[in-house]
Nucleic acid binder design. Sequence first.
DNA 1: AATGAATGAGAATTCATTCAT
DNA 2: GATGAATGAATTCTCATTCAT
Lengths: 216, 216, 216, 216
Amino acid sequence: MAVAARRERERTARREAILDAAQELVAAQGYHGMRMDSVAEAVELSKGTLYLYFENKDALCAAVATRLLDTLIPFMESALENTSTGLDAVHKLFQKYSDFTQENPHHFRFALAWLSEGERMDDSTEAFQIYRGRVGDMLSLVVASLKRGQADGSIRADVDPLPQALQLWTSFLGVVMVGLNREAMAQRVPVPMDFEQLVPLHLDAMVRALSSEGAS
Amino acid sequence: MAVAARRERERTARREAILDAAQELVAAQGYHGMRMDSVAEAVELSKGTLYLYFENKDALCAAVATRLLDTLIPFMESALENTSTGLDAVHKLFQKYSDFTQENPHHFRFALAWLSEGERMDDSTEAFQIYRGRVGDMLSLVVASLKRGQADGSIRADVDPLPQALQLWTSFLGVVMVGLNREAMAQRVPVPMDFEQLVPLHLDAMVRALSSEGAS
Amino acid sequence: MAVAARRERERTARREAILDAAQELVAAQGYHGMRMDSVAEAVELSKGTLYLYFENKDALCAAVATRLLDTLIPFMESALENTSTGLDAVHKLFQKYSDFTQENPHHFRFALAWLSEGERMDDSTEAFQIYRGRVGDMLSLVVASLKRGQADGSIRADVDPLPQALQLWTSFLGVVMVGLNREAMAQRVPVPMDFEQLVPLHLDAMVRALSSEGAS
Amino acid sequence: MAVAARRERERTARREAILDAAQELVAAQGYHGMRMDSVAEAVELSKGTLYLYFENKDALCAAVATRLLDTLIPFMESALENTSTGLDAVHKLFQKYSDFTQENPHHFRFALAWLSEGERMDDSTEAFQIYRGRVGDMLSLVVASLKRGQADGSIRADVDPLPQALQLWTSFLGVVMVGLNREAMAQRVPVPMDFEQLVPLHLDAMVRALSSEGAS
DNA sequence: AATGAATGAGAATTCATTCAT
DNA sequence: GATGAATGAATTCTCATTCAT
């Protein structure tokens, strides 16, 4: 029995180690740059062993993303403590979101790959299904804060919470995407770009747009 | 002489055909998914011939992007006619941008695929430099309108035109990206989404955020 | 344990098989004519497998050359036993060199093909650095014998050992090269050629040139 | 008639121009580095036109080499004027040969390719046959000087002219080959090499070896 | 005679995945 | 469970040669 338990523990630990390595590599080199070879080397396992833990590369990446969302959601929830108003809550929620993407660029890159190459990713794996569920959880946090803001008067009454949550989230996606691909952007845009400014500017714009103050 | 003229015509036509094929393939399969082989097959030319028209894969992609911007920019410029204020101009500029992406989903898919794979490209080709110039032209339209809005009092004076133009553009990228992948999104996000609403909501938010009215 | 030992044996054997095939192909077709495809086919391995054993084509070629020098050097060293003088040693060294090329025409053809195509190689691989070291070892034998000859008075005192060693080696290259291509030469040079005589004649000339006797 | 003559003149001029360009390119980039594309561009002709003047790449190269030998032979002959002895003549002959290879490295590279890749070159062309004849002419010069040296007593009587001429020529091939591939050599040999010294050293050694003075 | 667009058979190298041990 | 050697299809790019005009 104890043996089985230890085995299970070892298995979990190894799985986590693989996820750690994969996460770091995706962060450093992007989805395409991450090689199964490198993951194996990083965890000091053979390439074959990787396939005992994950069906294929996409499943491994989905598992990385899921684990990140599992971290992101409590991280965002923690932003809600000590918020004066719903508007403040929305602000802090996205601030956290932004912080998170800066610290875990892999999550974002994965999410984007998922969006922009969606059709070509292998979404048949269980790992992928779990990941999907998490996205809904995250959006719920935003919706709830918007509603709270309307209740406490900090957010305009004519805002429709769910669509507006999606507007907030998706516009954030664009800003953060650009921030994560600064090198690629700097190559393509012939003006100096201050990527550090981008997120604060966007957050500020979003707060102004939602605020009940100054509404006609 | 007629021969030279015809040759020139044929050459241009062939070039356009290659661009068409490449555009479609990148839109459908992403930058990595687009294979020079597939492009060649699609235009019924040999692989080698592609390289008579474009230095390499990156130059071909840059040419596709340039061609798209060549259409987009006049289209956006046309939005500036009959605009009452700078704020109105910004609004209409992005409205056009949005319309364009709806009508030319390929453009957007192309731009996104190219961006979100986030890898450095070969920027040594002439084609890439031309593309880079066009991106600047497009941004200039936004910057100019922001300045005009500050001059006529419709836009807040504390807005810094270039960074704000980037914020506007990049946040739009996210919204439109999601709008173009509505099916993938709808299937994956476990809440009902009304994509038609997304762009107007975002436009509205942006205008509120920039407007000098109701500024503290 | 036995498993590890067998694996190691197999790995070495496979490596040697690849080297054999590459050596033969370069000898027969020159450096450019040797294709990684052909090597793979010759050893009945997939192309990819070659790259598990050697970083790239240049590293493979460097390894072939190294292996040949590993045989040649002890063979030349054996010539130094029972030599009366330094001059005698130089003579016997090149006699051995010549014998070696007659017995291992592949070595020479390989070295020549590699040299006469005159292109820069990828010298960043470990394999190349090892090869480079071996070339130095071989030359050292000649340099040492020249010095010995000067010490014992058999070789002219005004000889500068290193440059002279290079002169000896490189002039030998030409003679042996022609000797190995006797058929091609005989067919192409419109005078009767006695190739058997060529090496002895050259050796004799070299000894006369180095000898301290008869120096002005 | 005049028309035919002019045509012929033009044709010859164009042929020469192609040879000039090819010669320069082989010199600069080696046999493999020389591209038919580059030749065409250099002479401002289309690639197709090249094939109206030369059967294929190898025939073009053979023609370059032939033309060079056509220059080399009178050049070597000119060395014979004002020579005091046969030994002096041999010395000056090879001195000229060496000068020539330094100034026309292409000739040499071609000759070597011909030797070391002989079997794979297309020797069926007429250009190639002409080239072969020239080689014999050149050797005859050396043979004649050796005989003269024996007659005037400057060269050892026991030298057999034809074999010795071949020894001289072939050993020179090696030295010059290395001199022409200095870059490749410098990469492979881990000792500092002074290529300028190599040819004089070799010439000196050859003269000592042939000289009747100091012969036993 | 001249053109130059088109060809297409390769070339080296990569990498996710499999499978005998 | 773990290994790691082997795979082989895929990918970008090259270049001597051809041929309709």
